[in-house]
Computed example of a mutant assay.
Amino acid sequence: MKKIAMLLVTASAIGMLTGCGIPEEEHNMIVQNLENEHAAEVDKLNAEIASQKDLVDNEKKKVRSMRVELDDATERITSLQQKSAETAKTLASEKSKTAGLESDLKTANSRLASAEERAAEAEAAYSTLDAEHQELARRFEMYRKNMSALSAPAAPAKSTAPAAMAEEPDMMSAPKTDAEKASSLLDMMGTM
């Protein structure tokens, strides 16, 4: 097949060179048509190249703007990662502070409970002492009334009673606390 094609091409080339059978005007017209078709194809291809060049330029602009956006996004991501790391550190420090504060709160609550317990005990002791004091005050008042009743009918007894009373505290050792004073008064009342 190649040989036949080569022979045809060679025969047509020889025929053209020798001008066998084709007049020059036809030949020029064919050449002109071929040149016009070629020019049309070149114009068409140039227009397509220009449109492709515009597309390439637009794509390049898009790529540049996307790179700028990508760089901005990368910077924002880096910034957010740093902030996230700082926030994590702050959170860890706050958690440790919270744990310390919770421990302090437990200690304070324990101390408060202990203080409330001691206060309740002190109130109970105060109530007991107050009741004892009231009882002693009542008895002392009764003692005083009894003493004044004993000393009122007899005038000479008055002079001897205070002397006896003045002697008795000297004989006994002086009481040191209110409870001891009260019990010594009661003892004195019982001996009369």
Rank of each mutant, 00 (worst) to 15 (best):
E48K: 10
L112N: 04
T128R: 03
M29G: 01
S184W: 07
M172A: 13
R76H: 01
T191A: 11
A119N: 04
D43K: 15
A47F: 01
E132L: 14
S84Q: 09
L55M: 05
K95F: 03
R76D: 04
H27I: 01
A39Y: 08
A122S: 14
A152I: 02
A40I: 06
A88R: 06
Q52Y: 10
N36K: 09
Y143A: 07
A108R: 07
L150A: 15
D170S: 03
L185P: 00
K89T: 15
Q134D: 06
Y143C: 01
A125S: 03
Q81D: 10
K83S: 15
M29K: 04
N146H: 10
M192V: 06
G190N: 09
L101K: 09
H38I: 00
L80P: 01
A47L: 02
E59G: 02
L136G: 09
N28M: 09
A137Q: 05
E41G: 12
L7S: 00
R118N: 13
K53G: 10
R76A: 07
E116S: 09
N36H: 05
P162K: 04
D130S: 15
R138I: 03
S103F: 05
N146G: 13
K181M: 09
N36I: 08
N28H: 11
L185S: 06
V63H: 11
A182Q: 02
T90C: 00
L186K: 04
Y126R: 06
A108N: 10
E168C: 06
S148T: 12
A131V: 05
K145L: 02
K97L: 08
A149T: 11
K106S: 13
L150H: 12
A85H: 11
E141D: 13
V63D: 06
A164W: 15
T90A: 12
T191W: 07
K158D: 11
M188K: 08
S84C: 06
E41Q: 08
A115M: 08
D57I: 10
P153W: 11
E141Q: 10
E94V: 10
L185E: 06
A88P: 00
S110K: 01
V56D: 10
